[in-house]
Simulated assay, not measured.
Amino acid sequence: MRNNSKPSTPQAAVYKVEQEQTLLPFLLQAISKSRNAVKGILSRGQVTVNGEPTTQHDKLLKAGDRVEIMTNLAAKNDSELSGLSIMYEDDAIIVIDKEAGLLSMAAKDKKEMTAFSELSAYVRKANRSNRVFIVHRLDRETSGVMLFAKTEEVKKMLQDNWEESVKERGYAALVEGKVRNETGEIISWLKETRTFKVYSNPTNNGGQKAITRYKRLQMGAQYSLLELRLETGRKNQIRVHMEEIGHPVAGDKKYGASTNPLKRLGLHAVKLTIIHPVTKEQHTFISDPPSSFYKKSK
């Protein structure tokens, strides 16, 4: 593989494929960026193969193929964002990778920077009338994949058909203690009190039914790393369910944690699989968990 030295335009770089391989590994070799950054470039449609745009990370490349990577205005604007990066964008939706510490949207302090305010400013650079709409939220200290709509109509389509639109939501959680079972399922009914804390009940108490499935990835002396899949999307569901099984999320004092090894909540939204509200195509967005999650659970 080699760079064809001069880009075909001032905002593109062209690479020639010298041996058969899939696209994502090729891009990781071609440009000096992190795996998540390269996935973002690919998801935003900045990559073409032989002149054809593609977002398919496992697309097979053959010797002689021509791969072009656009460094367009969207990429420039993305670099100016703080606390998040754009994983995918089209006329209907924006998918971001949110950092821990960034609010989804403002609560009390309207001046505080949020994912919503950052994206609002970003889309208005192209057109002052452009807007974004929150489809679902992540807690301030939870990082990872988050979905926004670009029109109120698209937001309504996604929220009104959430169970059909969202095929999978996956998380990684660093939890306290040794989780002995390799896999498990937690089913309970959740209710929120006036103090905004959610409580779990093993039987139907009129609350919302919540189902969380987990798989143990690593187990150390003090912490375990779990892969979690939500069958329902209730407020604080994972945090409540982890407390319920005696393994609260690290750093989650509100729901039973006594330690804070990461100086943040040990929860990361790894995977979101959706049916696109307009094209009806299935898209999967993946954000790798922070390396600290693995280090602390060894």
Rank of each mutant, 00 (worst) to 15 (best):
189 W>G: 00
189 W>I: 00
190 L>D: 03
190 L>P: 03
191 K>A: 06
191 K>L: 03
193 T>E: 15
193 T>M: 06
194 R>Q: 12
195 T>Y: 12
196 F>M: 09
196 F>L: 13
198 V>N: 08
198 V>I: 13
199 Y>F: 09
200 S>H: 05
201 N>M: 04
203 T>Q: 11
203 T>F: 10
203 T>D: 02
206 G>A: 10
206 G>N: 02
207 G>E: 08
207 G>S: 09
207 G>W: 02
207 G>V: 01
208 Q>R: 11
208 Q>S: 11
209 K>N: 01
210 A>H: 07
211 I>L: 14
211 I>N: 11
212 T>A: 05
212 T>G: 08
212 T>D: 08
213 R>D: 07
214 Y>G: 04
214 Y>E: 12
215 K>D: 02
215 K>S: 12
215 K>P: 01
215 K>L: 01
216 R>H: 07
216 R>V: 15
216 R>E: 14
216 R>M: 13
218 Q>N: 15
218 Q>H: 14
220 G>L: 14
220 G>M: 11
220 G>H: 12
220 G>S: 11
221 A>F: 08
225 L>S: 10
225 L>C: 12
226 L>A: 05
226 L>M: 09
228 L>K: 05
229 R>D: 11
230 L>W: 09
230 L>T: 09
232 T>M: 05
232 T>A: 06
233 G>Y: 02
234 R>D: 01
236 N>W: 05
236 N>R: 10
236 N>G: 01
238 I>H: 05
239 R>H: 02
239 R>E: 00
240 V>G: 01
241 H>C: 02
242 M>E: 07
242 M>W: 04
242 M>Q: 03
243 E>T: 00
243 E>Y: 00
244 E>H: 09
244 E>S: 11
245 I>G: 02
248 P>H: 04
248 P>V: 04
248 P>A: 06
250 A>S: 12
251 G>A: 07
251 G>F: 10
251 G>D: 07
252 D>L: 07
253 K>M: 03
253 K>A: 13
255 Y>I: 07
255 Y>P: 08
255 Y>Q: 11
256 G>K: 05
257 A>R: 06
259 T>V: 08
261 P>T: 07
262 L>A: 04
263 K>P: 00
263 K>M: 12
264 R>C: 07
264 R>S: 13
264 R>H: 05
264 R>F: 00
265 L>H: 01
265 L>I: 14
265 L>P: 01
266 G>H: 13
267 L>T: 03
267 L>K: 07
268 H>L: 09
269 A>T: 04
269 A>Q: 10
271 K>R: 14
272 L>H: 11
272 L>P: 12
273 T>F: 09
273 T>M: 10
274 I>L: 15
276 H>W: 09
277 P>T: 10
277 P>R: 12
277 P>A: 13
278 V>Q: 14
278 V>R: 12
280 K>R: 14
282 Q>D: 04
282 Q>G: 02
282 Q>R: 14
283 H>M: 12
283 H>L: 15
283 H>Y: 15
283 H>C: 03
